[in-house]
Every structure is written in structure tokens, then in C-alpha cells.
Nucleic acid binder design. Structure first.
Lengths: 187, 187
DNA sequence: GTTTGCCTTCGAGCGCGCTCGAAGCCCTAG
DNA sequence: CTAGGGCTTCGAGCGCGCTCGAAGGCAAAC
């Protein structure tokens, strides 16, 4: 188990088009059953990142990890939770820089809560904007797919290879084809 | 005008939460009113990328652009349309590699339409998956924001600076706080 | 004429986020 | 005893997508 990441696991439990259920969040990171302490390999497996990446995150100051007698890393529950948070935020596109800032605030104490909230709100807005962008791109792509080879109109140009001027249109046939993504007026 | 990109412009016309209207796609790239040919500066302005980036795309083989008597680039309508397509695909996360592949197919002639369709479908699925990931991250982030400073429970730890063990929790107060993103059970 | 300004080519450099390799330590299995 | 495997640190390297600087051309403005 745990060869796929948390995100994939939860997404798998969701209908591909269902609404975003808050319950999924709980299911998302059910750390119950996670041992008291874990090795780097175990954590890497659970989070679906490489041990290299975990060391990198530690070097970057995102988490502190204790060592055992042999100098090996020992991840306690707090460290694992922190790393779950970190990997989730990375997955949602938060830059390392911001993440460093955030965890620095966390380590600085409770009086930084307002600033942390500000960062979260900012990040939320970033995600929202990104989703809207992607939704639009998705619609455009779906439209392009749908009209590809739809009404196969007049063939404007034969196979032209490398000869002609800059050819942008995949074909002269599927009229609204590239139009949908490339501009020009209606279908 | 045109200091903001196409995406931003269309997003601006959309309600922040509205459904993805197909009509937006048409509005999205209304190239009517675009001159017969454009300079690199004009294209850069319209697409909200730098001239540097446009030259880079050309070097990368994504578009061919003619030169005038002075050796300056002259973008015709086809080139501009191609670049609109390219920038949109880039914005939706398609890697340069795939884009190169796609336009190579376009230039190779109409018999590559099926393969192009395959690429588009693949890209569509990638966008969909990404949207689902982001939606989940959004829900998690919103949950975290909502519960921040909710029930301000017992203060677990004072300001600890750099001293203590690895602290992951922003505070002991907002119980479900980090839990929402970090794991553990219910609120 | 000279200055301003935008264009050209070319190759180098950068920021990000990993990713890897080398050299070495420790433990366990055979 | 030896071999194997996984861990450690450190610093270097990489893939991506730009981004920039240098050196120079040409044209219009002053």
C-alpha cells in the first residue's frame, strides 16, 4: 500500500465530477494507524515522495527531524503531520519560499496567527484563480476536441510538409477547429 | 489596452464562480480588429508575454515568422493565431515538449489529425485531474481558514522560538486547525 | 550628425524544485 | 568474515522555461 499519494487516493474515492466534500479532507489524511515514529523510507512511502526530497525539505527548514543513535532520522507524529501539510501545500502550488515563510511563522509562536491566516487566504485565492484558468482552458480544449473532424468542410490545403508559409491550422477542414482556441469569431 | 492577458480579460468577464460558458471561448480570442501584420512588440503586448519569450518560442520551433527588409519579425494572422494557441496551451500547463510535438504534427499535414486528437484528449485529462487536485486543496485550505481561531481552547505552548522540539501546530488553540490539513481525525 | 529607440542574433544565466552521486557508517544475513 | 542494503552528509547537476546582456543595425527625431 501507499505507493500512490494521498491526493490520488482521495481522488480515487471521489466521483470524477462530484462536488468537493469536506469529509474527503478527513479521509484524506487519516493518520490513525501510523506508528509512533517512522523511518525516512516509511515517510517517503506514505507521502509518495523520495527520501531525497524529504532530506531536501529538512535542509530547506520546513521541518526538524530527530536522529537515533545511528544518526538516522526518526520522524515523530508531529514531523509527519508537518510533512503532510508541506506536501499538500506543495501539491497545490505553494512555492517553497512561501512555505518557508509560513512554517517560520508557525515556529515563531501563536502571535503570528493573523499573518498566517493572511498567507492562507492569499493562497486560497491563488488556487481559486488557477482553477478558473484551468476550467476555461478545459472548456477550450474540450471544444477543440469536439469540433475536430466535425463538419468536414472544404479542404483548404493539401499536405504541405515544410514548403509553404507558416501554417497554423491543423487542417482547412474542421472549420471552427483551431478557431476555438486560436481566435476569430463564431463557429 | 492589452496590458493584461487574454485569460485575465475573459476571467474578468466571468462571475468568479460561474459555470464555464462556451461563449467565453469565442470572446476569449476575438482577433477581429487585429492588423494584417504585427511587430513583435505588438504581439507581445496582445499576448502579454515578452518579446524575449516570443523569440524563444520561435527558436523552439513553435512558430515560423517572416522578416521584413530590415530583418525585423513580421507576424501575420496565422503566426498570431498560432501564438495565441501556444500561449493558451502553455497557460494550461502543457509542457514545451508536448507543444513542440503538437505543432510538428500540425506542420506535418492533415494525416496527423488522429494523433493530434490523442494529444488533446490526453491534455484534457491532465487538466481535469489538475482541477480535481486543486479543488481538493482548495477545500482543505478553506477548511483550515474557517477553523483558524475557531474555538480557542487551552493554550498548549507559549512562544517557543527555536528552543523546543519540532513544533508543527500553529497553536494548541485552534484544535482542528492543522488537523484539517495535516491529518488526524475529525474536528 | 547624433541621439534615441527598437529591432536583430547569440549564448549565457537564473530561479525553482528537486535529483543524484560519492564516500562512508552501521546493522544484519549468510 | 564478508557482503548487502539502507542510512548519513555534502555538494554538484539537471530539466524546465524563460530572461537577460552584449554587440550591432537601421530609422526617425532633433
Amino acid at each position: 500500500m501507499a505507493t500512490d499519494d494521498l491526493m490520488t487516493r482521495v481522488l480515487g474515492t471521489l466521483g470524477d465530477d462530484g462536488p468537493p466534500p469536506v469529509e474527503a479532507i478527513h479521509r484524506l489524511t487519516d493518520l490513525a494507524g501510523v506508528p509512533e515514529s517512522m523511518t525516512i523510507a516509511e515517510v517517503a512511502d506514505v507521502l509518495d515522495v523520495s527520501p531525497h526530497t524529504l532530506r531536501y525539505y529538512e535542509r530547506a527548514g520546513l521541518v526538524e527531524v530527530a536522529r537515533d543513535g545511528n544518526g538516522h532520522r526518526v520522524y515523530d507524529a508531529d514531523a509527519v503531520r508537518r510533512l503532510v501539510f508541506v506536501t499538500r501545500m506543495r501539491l497545490s502550488g505553494m512555492p517553497m519560499r512561501d512555505l518557508r515563510h509560513y512554517v517560520a511563522l508557525v515556529d515563531a509562536g501563536e502571535h503570528t496567527v493573523p499573518e498566517r491566516l493572511g498567507l492562507l487566504v492569499e493562497h486560497r485565492d491563488t488556487i481559486r484563480r488557477r482553477i478558473r484558468e484551468l476550467t476555461l482552458s478545459l472548456t477550450a480544449t474540450e471544444y477543440k476536441i469536439a469540433t475536430y473532424g466535425g463538419a468536414t468542410g472544404p479542404d483548404v490545403q493539401g499536405p504541405n510538409g515544410a514548403a509553404g508559409p507558416d501554417v497554423h491550422a491543423p487542417n482547412g477542414a474542421a472549420g471552427p477547429d483551431v478557431q476555438a482556441l486560436n481566435g476569430a469569431a463564431g463557429p
